[in-house]
């Protein structure tokens, strides 16, 4: 037995001995999550545009497209098409899709009277009225043909102000006569305000116009009344939380965490 092998054996024996002392062992774990869409038929991705509503302080359509494109550029193998952002709300209102037409379409688009569409999108119900747009395979297929049949990313996004009152857990720090610090929790009633971000991502096959997948996310953030956080900052804060979920649809990911092993 070489000295190295002996040392290794000793380390294993020592490790076994040490581990024997504890009944739980925390271990880092990387959990693989497969992509939900097979993007192998596509070389390019077009983040087309979103039907946006809610706060007027943020152009949710433009900001969503910009952010998704920049994320896809660095975190996917697809080539991101740089095209003008489609004002999808206007497209839907001015040219309501007539039918689903294309072969392979997921569902024919229902006929919608543009006059019935809400003028201002304030809530989820208003957004739902526009859902027919995504089922119009003919429209998306035609758009796909313009850009060499990419994977198309579109959907809806609602970014709305939000307020909630209630008890929250706070911490009070005190320093005694000897300079020792202590933190005590207490409950306080507060009026807090913030934002809700609720995007629905729709993934469309640019070759057929058919929907491949759609996912709804919802995140909210609340601030203390004395905090004056700009709407755009909140928007990005919430998008930061959603991006891994969005990317998980297109690319395989590894989630890092820890687990406890038992003896």
């Amino acid at each position: 037995m070489t000295a190295r092998a002996a040392a290794l054996l000793a380390s294993v024996v020592a490790a076994v001995g040490l581990a024997a002392c504890a009944s739980t062992i925390e271990i880092p774990l990387e959990t693989p999550i497969q992509a939900k869409i097979d993007t192998s038929p596509f070389q390019r991705v077009l983040v087309a545009g979103f039907i946006a509503g809610g706060s007027e302080e943020v152009d949710a359509n433009l900001e969503m497209v910009r952010l998704l494109r920049s994320q896809l550029r660095t975190k996917s193998n697809l080539r991101v098409i740089e095209a003008d952002v489609i004002p999808l709300t206007d497209v839907a209102a001015q040219q309501p899709p007539a039918d689903g037409g294309a072969p392979g379409a997921a569902a024919p688009a229902p006929t919608v009277d543009p006059k019935t569409l809400p003028k201002q999108i304030k809530d989820e119900k208003d957004l739902d009225a526009y859902d027919y747009v995504f089922a119009n395979a003919g429209y998306w297929k035609k758009l796909g043909e313009e850009f060499q049949s990419p994977l198309i990313v579109t959907g809806t996004v609602l970014f709305t102000p939000y307020a909630r009152s209630g008890f929250v857990q706070r911490e009070h720090e005190t320093v005694d006569a000897y300079g020792r610090r202590s933190v005590e929790p207490y409950r306080a009633y507060m009026d807090r305000k913030g934002f809700i971000l609720r995007p629905k991502f729709v993934f469309i096959d640019g070759r057929t116009g058919a929907i491949l997948n759609s996912e709804v996310f919802r995140e909210e953030v609340l601030y203390n009344p004395n905090q004056d956080t700009p709407a755009l900052s909140s928007y990005f804060e919430l998008m930061d939380r959603l991006i891994p979920g969005f990317l998980g649809t297109l690319t395989s990911q590894k989630i890092r965490g820890t687990r406890v092993l038992l003896k």
């Binding site: 739980t24 959990t31 999550i33 497969q34 939900k36 997921a106 569902a107 629905k200 929907i211 997948n213 759609s214 996912e215 709804v216 979920g245 998980g248 989630i255 965490g257 687990r259 406890v260 038992l262």
Partner: peptide
């Protein structure tokens, strides 16, 4: 066993994320 339950909670979070799909 709190450790098993904790592991399971973390697992469920990831599993929900992996299997999350919404109807079209």
């Amino acid at each position: 066993n709190a450790s098993i339950r904790q592991n399971y909670e973390y697992f469920k979070e990831i599993n929900d994320r992996a299997s999350r799909r919404t109807p079209r």
